[in-house]
Write a protein that binds this DNA or RNA. Structure first.
Lengths: 238, 238
DNA sequence: CTCTATTCTCGTACTGCGTACGAGAATAGA
DNA sequence: TCTATTCTCGTACGCAGTACGAGAATAGAG
């Protein structure tokens, strides 16, 4: 266990984790499964947020003792990894790329956005580096196929994938937080009063003006589309 | 305490937190200061990562009892909020906008990137919604001034600020994670072997090709600039 | 059928976290 | 000097992740 300290990205050995078809034909038969445990953890995160996902809660939901989970995942960090890849299984795309790679890429990003809105914990879970599991790789495979007509080299394509994903995650995280604030009237009111007070102090003329002339309210959807188009339209200007 | 559960964004009342010049002229004189405590927490996060920032460690570093911290911040979440705004004090920009808002915006983003690389915990800390403190607001004020020539309305300018910040955070988070992996030879090797194994299974032709024809290696710096330009160059195409 | 090696289950227990509580110390005005 | 106020911090509680190891279940060997 090499605690380097500086970053929390103590990720898991991918070979140990993903390249195990399992073959132990001796000893006690497993009572649970990695699948079931992961699914329970995902359901919990969907329903009550990531911080509700504790080993005790997951074990209880699945009907196991706490320590039994450790037969299926070496630690909680790994369970998170499994959760991320598990939900990536929903990202299956059946139709092949159309040839219009811009349109395809837009569709990919929209798919990712819907996906992350359905699993609001995903942007947070993705904010630390993950090793791609099989489902993630299947999706990546599709995105690479979409990018084929661009003629970009391998590293560049991977980079585009990472950037698009990061962009969508960032946007959705913001979108969720914004929604959570405006859904709580007292919090929204408090924030409004605070910003109004700051704007009234005379030291923030630009902010004061921005708040007094807000313009038409922006829907998250429109904003997402707009920024996404900017990003994608610029993609072949190298 | 309204635990809504679904999101971890239980933020703090901004009026209570930021609009307090402090005036208690009675009672025991404080032995420490919010400043000092926040600075200690920041130093700790810089040196050993965010997960090293515990109330006990911060208290020890500052020479206080653990519970004394709670006279300066109501809880740890708030301390994080203070840390974020504290480091935003480094973002002071003295020169006024040049008038070339694209160039100014690029400079802003580069400043943010350097800032986040100096405080690698910042992207993570920013991934949950924060109420802007005074230093953050001062920087926002500058960015709004930069955006004045665009003629965008208030909401749109704020949106641009949020997007640029999210973009930089996403990029830097990726950059840091990537760097951490490649700085550890065994981990990089394990990941390489894993991906090679996946590429060799025949089910991932695109990935196989991308890995076999990587092209010239991309420096984070160049990639950042490229994507940033794409984002900014698209900004007036509404 | 029994023995043994193997694998999984899970109660107990340890460490470390955030923080509620409240007794005591320091200070300012009456 | 007294009292109200404010800050300090030792103790303690509940919950987190998980190390340990005893016991239960299973598969092949004899």
């Amino acid at each position: 266990m090499s605690r380097d300290g500086r970053s929390g990205a103590e990720s898991v050995d991918p070979e140990q984790l993903w390249l195990r078809p399992a073959e132990p034909r001796r000893g006690r038969r497993p009572s649970f499964s990695r699948e079931a445990i992961t699914a329970a953890a995902v359901a919990l995160a969907d329903a009550e947020g990531l911080e509700a996902v504790t080993m005790r809660r997951v074990a209880a939901d699945v009907g196991a003792g706490v320590m039994s989970l450790y037969s299926y995942a070496p630690d909680k960090e790994t369970l998170l990894e499994l959760m991320v890849d598990h939900v990536c299984g929903e990202l299956t795309v059946t139709d092949p790329p159309s040839g219009d790679w811009r349109a395809d890429l837009r569709a990919v990003a929209r798919l990712q956005r819907a996906h992350m809105l359905r699993h609001p914990w995903l942007p947070v879970a993705l904010s630390t580096r993950r090793v791609p599991g099989p489902n993630t790789l299947a999706f990546l495979e599709h995105v690479l196929a979409v990018l084929r007509p661009t003629g970009l080299d391998g590293a560049a394509k991977l980079e585009v994938f990472a950037q698009i994903t990061a962009f969508v995650a960032g946007h959705v995280a913001h979108e969720i937080a914004q929604g959570a604030v405006s859904r709580s009237p007292d919090r929204a009111a408090a924030e409004g009063r605070y910003l109004a007070a700051v704007a009234a102090d005379g030291c923030h003329p630009e902010l004061a003006e921005a708040l007094s002339a807000p313009g038409r309210p922006l829907t998250p959807d429109a904003t997402f589309t707009r920024f996404l188009n900017r990003l994608i339209d610029g993609l072949d200007t190298d």
